[in-house]
Protein backbone atom coordinates (compact mmCIF):
# COMPACT_ATOMS: atom_id res chain seq x y z
CA UNK A 1 0.00 0.00 0.00
CA UNK A 2 1.07 3.57 -0.66
CA UNK A 3 2.34 5.73 2.20
CA UNK A 4 -0.04 8.62 2.93
CA UNK A 5 0.59 11.93 4.66
CA UNK A 6 -2.01 11.02 7.30
CA UNK A 7 -0.23 7.77 8.06
CA UNK A 8 3.15 9.49 8.48
CA UNK A 9 1.49 12.12 10.69
CA UNK A 10 0.01 9.37 12.87
CA UNK A 11 3.46 7.81 13.38
CA UNK A 12 5.26 11.13 13.76
CA UNK A 13 2.67 12.67 16.08
CA UNK A 14 2.71 9.59 18.34
CA UNK A 15 6.46 10.04 18.73
CA UNK A 16 6.34 13.84 19.09
CA UNK A 17 3.60 13.94 21.73
CA UNK A 18 5.18 11.04 23.64
CA UNK A 19 8.49 12.95 23.66
CA UNK A 20 6.82 16.10 24.99
CA UNK A 21 5.06 14.18 27.79
CA UNK A 22 8.23 12.32 28.79
CA UNK A 23 10.13 15.60 28.84
CA UNK A 24 7.79 16.85 31.57
CA UNK A 25 9.48 14.41 33.94
CA UNK A 26 12.87 16.09 33.65
CA UNK A 27 13.88 17.33 37.12
CA UNK A 28 10.70 15.75 38.57
CA UNK A 29 11.34 11.98 38.28
CA UNK A 30 11.60 9.80 41.43
CA UNK A 31 15.39 9.61 41.11
CA UNK A 32 18.13 11.34 39.14
CA UNK A 33 18.84 8.27 37.00
CA UNK A 34 15.21 8.25 35.91
CA UNK A 35 15.39 11.91 34.89
CA UNK A 36 18.23 10.96 32.57
CA UNK A 37 16.45 7.82 31.34
CA UNK A 38 13.18 9.52 30.48
CA UNK A 39 14.98 12.46 28.86
CA UNK A 40 16.95 10.06 26.67
CA UNK A 41 13.83 8.09 25.71
CA UNK A 42 12.16 11.40 24.86
CA UNK A 43 15.17 12.29 22.71
CA UNK A 44 14.87 9.02 20.78
CA UNK A 45 11.16 9.66 20.22
CA UNK A 46 11.86 13.21 19.11
CA UNK A 47 14.50 11.96 16.66
CA UNK A 48 12.00 9.60 15.04
CA UNK A 49 9.33 12.32 15.05
CA UNK A 50 11.60 14.73 13.18
CA UNK A 51 12.32 12.20 10.42
CA UNK A 52 8.67 11.20 10.08
CA UNK A 53 7.29 14.76 10.07
CA UNK A 54 9.95 15.91 7.60
CA UNK A 55 8.89 13.06 5.31
CA UNK A 56 5.19 13.91 5.81
CA UNK A 57 5.84 17.53 4.88
CA UNK A 58 7.74 16.60 1.72
CA UNK A 59 5.08 14.07 0.68
CA UNK A 60 2.36 16.63 1.25
CA UNK A 61 4.18 19.04 -1.05
CA UNK A 62 2.71 22.20 0.50
CA UNK A 63 6.03 23.56 1.73
CA UNK A 64 5.58 22.59 5.38
CA UNK A 65 8.71 21.40 7.17
CA UNK A 66 9.01 19.55 10.51
CA UNK A 67 8.75 22.80 12.49
CA UNK A 68 5.63 23.97 10.64
CA UNK A 69 3.99 20.62 11.30
CA UNK A 70 5.00 20.45 14.96
CA UNK A 71 4.40 24.04 15.96
CA UNK A 72 1.79 25.47 13.63
CA UNK A 73 -0.96 22.86 13.56
CA UNK A 74 -3.95 22.98 15.91
CA UNK A 75 -5.22 20.03 17.93
CA UNK A 76 -7.72 18.85 15.31
CA UNK A 77 -4.89 18.46 12.80
CA UNK A 78 -2.86 16.11 15.02
CA UNK A 79 -3.18 12.38 14.26
CA UNK A 80 -1.58 10.90 17.38
CA UNK A 81 -3.34 8.22 19.42
CA UNK A 82 -5.04 9.31 22.65
CA UNK A 83 -2.68 7.19 24.77
CA UNK A 84 0.35 9.44 24.28
CA UNK A 85 -1.48 12.69 25.09
CA UNK A 86 -2.89 11.45 28.41
CA UNK A 87 -1.32 13.20 31.43
CA UNK A 88 1.71 11.53 33.01
CA UNK A 89 -0.18 10.76 36.21
CA UNK A 90 2.00 9.12 38.84
CA UNK A 91 5.16 7.24 37.86
CA UNK A 92 3.21 3.98 37.47
CA UNK A 93 0.88 5.58 34.90
CA UNK A 94 3.88 6.88 32.97
CA UNK A 95 5.41 3.39 32.96
CA UNK A 96 2.13 1.76 31.86
CA UNK A 97 1.92 4.27 29.00
CA UNK A 98 5.56 3.63 28.03
CA UNK A 99 5.15 -0.16 28.21
CA UNK A 100 2.15 -0.17 25.88
CA UNK A 101 3.56 2.48 23.54
CA UNK A 102 6.95 0.76 23.22
CA UNK A 103 5.38 -2.68 22.65
CA UNK A 104 3.14 -1.17 19.96
CA UNK A 105 5.95 0.78 18.30
CA UNK A 106 8.26 -2.25 18.37
CA UNK A 107 5.75 -4.45 16.53
CA UNK A 108 4.78 -1.66 14.12
CA UNK A 109 8.33 -0.53 13.31
CA UNK A 110 9.44 -4.13 12.87
CA UNK A 111 6.67 -4.69 10.33
CA UNK A 112 7.34 -1.36 8.61
CA UNK A 113 11.07 -2.03 8.30
CA UNK A 114 10.18 -4.59 5.63
CA UNK A 115 7.66 -2.43 3.75
CA UNK A 116 8.01 -1.34 0.11
CA UNK A 117 8.52 2.36 0.95
CA UNK A 118 12.30 2.45 1.36
CA UNK A 119 12.42 5.77 3.17
CA UNK A 120 9.81 4.72 5.72
CA UNK A 121 11.44 1.30 6.08
CA UNK A 122 14.79 2.95 6.86
CA UNK A 123 13.29 5.17 9.57
CA UNK A 124 11.40 2.21 11.05
CA UNK A 125 14.41 -0.11 11.15
CA UNK A 126 16.43 2.61 12.88
CA UNK A 127 13.74 3.48 15.43
CA UNK A 128 12.96 -0.19 16.09
CA UNK A 129 16.33 -0.73 17.77
CA UNK A 130 15.85 2.26 20.06
CA UNK A 131 12.29 1.34 21.00
CA UNK A 132 13.42 -2.16 22.03
CA UNK A 133 15.45 -0.52 24.79
CA UNK A 134 12.48 1.64 25.85
CA UNK A 135 10.37 -1.50 26.12
CA UNK A 136 12.98 -3.16 28.28
CA UNK A 137 13.10 -0.13 30.54
CA UNK A 138 9.31 -0.04 30.99
CA UNK A 139 9.24 -3.82 31.53
CA UNK A 140 11.77 -3.64 34.35
CA UNK A 141 9.82 -0.89 36.13
CA UNK A 142 6.46 -2.61 35.63
CA UNK A 143 7.79 -5.80 37.21
CA UNK A 144 9.56 -3.89 39.99
CA UNK A 145 6.43 -1.93 40.91
CA UNK A 146 3.86 -4.67 40.24
CA UNK A 147 5.80 -7.30 42.16
CA UNK A 148 6.96 -4.84 44.80
CA UNK A 149 5.21 -3.58 47.90
CA UNK A 150 1.45 -3.66 48.45
CA UNK A 151 1.29 0.06 47.67
CA UNK A 152 3.41 -0.11 44.50
CA UNK A 153 1.37 -3.11 43.33
CA UNK A 154 -1.89 -1.26 43.93
CA UNK A 155 -0.67 1.77 41.99
CA UNK A 156 0.76 -0.23 39.08
CA UNK A 157 -2.46 -2.23 38.74
CA UNK A 158 -4.50 0.98 38.84
CA UNK A 159 -2.25 2.45 36.12
CA UNK A 160 -2.60 -0.60 33.88
CA UNK A 161 -6.39 -0.57 34.37
CA UNK A 162 -6.53 3.14 33.53
CA UNK A 163 -4.39 2.97 30.37
CA UNK A 164 -5.46 -0.40 28.95
CA UNK A 165 -8.66 0.90 27.22
CA UNK A 166 -6.54 3.33 25.21
CA UNK A 167 -4.47 0.52 23.67
CA UNK A 168 -7.40 -0.59 21.48
CA UNK A 169 -7.12 2.54 19.35
CA UNK A 170 -3.58 1.55 18.37
CA UNK A 171 -4.89 -1.46 16.46
CA UNK A 172 -7.87 0.06 14.64
CA UNK A 173 -7.96 -1.35 11.10
CA UNK A 174 -6.40 0.87 8.43
CA UNK A 175 -6.32 -1.08 5.17
CA UNK A 176 -4.72 1.88 3.38
CA UNK A 177 -1.63 1.93 5.63
CA UNK A 178 1.66 0.27 4.52
CA UNK A 179 1.12 -2.08 7.47
CA UNK A 180 -2.44 -2.55 8.77
CA UNK A 181 -2.22 -2.10 12.56
CA UNK A 182 -5.16 -4.48 13.03
CA UNK A 183 -2.84 -7.41 12.33
CA UNK A 184 -0.37 -6.42 15.05
CA UNK A 185 -2.46 -6.84 18.19
CA UNK A 186 -1.67 -10.52 18.67
CA UNK A 187 2.06 -9.72 18.67
CA UNK A 188 1.49 -6.80 21.04
CA UNK A 189 -0.35 -9.06 23.47
CA UNK A 190 2.41 -11.66 23.20
CA UNK A 191 4.84 -9.00 24.48
CA UNK A 192 2.66 -7.32 27.08
CA UNK A 193 0.80 -10.21 28.71
CA UNK A 194 3.92 -12.05 29.96
CA UNK A 195 5.19 -8.76 31.44
CA UNK A 196 1.94 -8.23 33.34
CA UNK A 197 2.01 -11.85 34.51
CA UNK A 198 5.61 -11.54 35.73
CA UNK A 199 4.61 -8.34 37.52
CA UNK A 200 1.74 -10.22 39.25
CA UNK A 201 -0.70 -7.83 37.60
CA UNK A 202 -4.07 -8.69 36.15
CA UNK A 203 -4.53 -8.14 32.45
CA UNK A 204 -7.68 -5.95 32.23
CA UNK A 205 -10.72 -7.13 30.31
CA UNK A 206 -11.34 -5.70 26.84
CA UNK A 207 -14.41 -3.50 26.99
CA UNK A 208 -14.34 0.31 26.78
CA UNK A 209 -12.25 1.37 23.77
CA UNK A 210 -12.01 5.15 23.41
CA UNK A 211 -10.67 6.37 20.06
CA UNK A 212 -10.64 9.40 17.78
CA UNK A 213 -7.01 10.55 17.75
CA UNK A 214 -6.34 9.21 14.25
CA UNK A 215 -9.26 11.37 13.01
CA UNK A 216 -8.17 14.46 14.93
CA UNK A 217 -10.70 14.04 17.75
CA UNK A 218 -8.64 14.33 20.92
CA UNK A 219 -9.05 14.52 24.67
CA UNK A 220 -8.96 17.93 26.29
CA UNK A 221 -5.38 17.20 27.42
CA UNK A 222 -3.81 17.65 23.98
CA UNK A 223 -4.69 21.34 23.67
CA UNK A 224 -2.93 22.19 26.92
CA UNK A 225 0.13 20.19 25.86
CA UNK A 226 0.25 21.96 22.49
CA UNK A 227 -0.15 25.37 24.11
CA UNK A 228 2.99 24.77 26.13
CA UNK A 229 4.93 23.12 23.29
CA UNK A 230 4.04 25.71 20.65
CA UNK A 231 3.98 29.00 22.55
CA UNK A 232 7.59 30.01 21.93
CA UNK A 233 7.52 29.27 18.23
CA UNK A 234 4.20 31.07 17.78
CA UNK A 235 5.26 34.09 19.83
CA UNK A 236 8.53 34.41 17.89
CA UNK A 237 7.90 33.02 14.38
CA UNK A 238 11.10 32.01 12.64
CA UNK A 239 13.29 32.64 15.70
CA UNK A 240 16.62 30.78 15.67
CA UNK A 241 19.50 30.25 18.03
Amino acid sequence: MKTTVDHLLALGDDALIAAQRLGEWVAAAPELEEDVALANIALDQLGAARLLLTYAGELEGAGRDEDALAYLRDDREFRNCLLVELPNGDFAVTMAKLLFLAAYQLTLYTALSGCADERLAAIASKARKEVAYHLDHARLWTVRLGDGTAESHRRMQAAVDEIWPYTHELFLPDPTAPVDPAGLRAEFLAIVEPVLAEATLERPADDWAPEGGRRGLHTEHLSYLLAEMQVLHRAHPGARW
Binding site: E33, V36, A37, A39, N40, I41, L43, D44, Y133, H137, L140
Partner: peptide, 13 residues
Amino acid sequence: QVSRFGSTACKAL
Protein backbone atom coordinates in the same frame (compact mmCIF):
# COMPACT_ATOMS: atom_id res chain seq x y z
CA GLN B 1 24.81 -1.23 36.18
CA VAL B 2 23.96 1.94 38.08
CA SER B 3 21.74 3.57 35.49
CA ARG B 4 20.40 2.24 32.19
CA PHE B 5 20.98 5.63 30.62
CA GLY B 6 24.05 7.84 30.95
CA SER B 7 25.49 11.18 29.88
CA THR B 8 24.56 10.64 26.22
CA ALA B 9 21.89 8.62 24.41
CA CYS B 10 24.42 5.90 23.56
CA LYS B 11 25.79 5.24 27.07
CA ALA B 12 24.79 3.65 30.37
CA LEU B 13 26.38 4.27 33.77
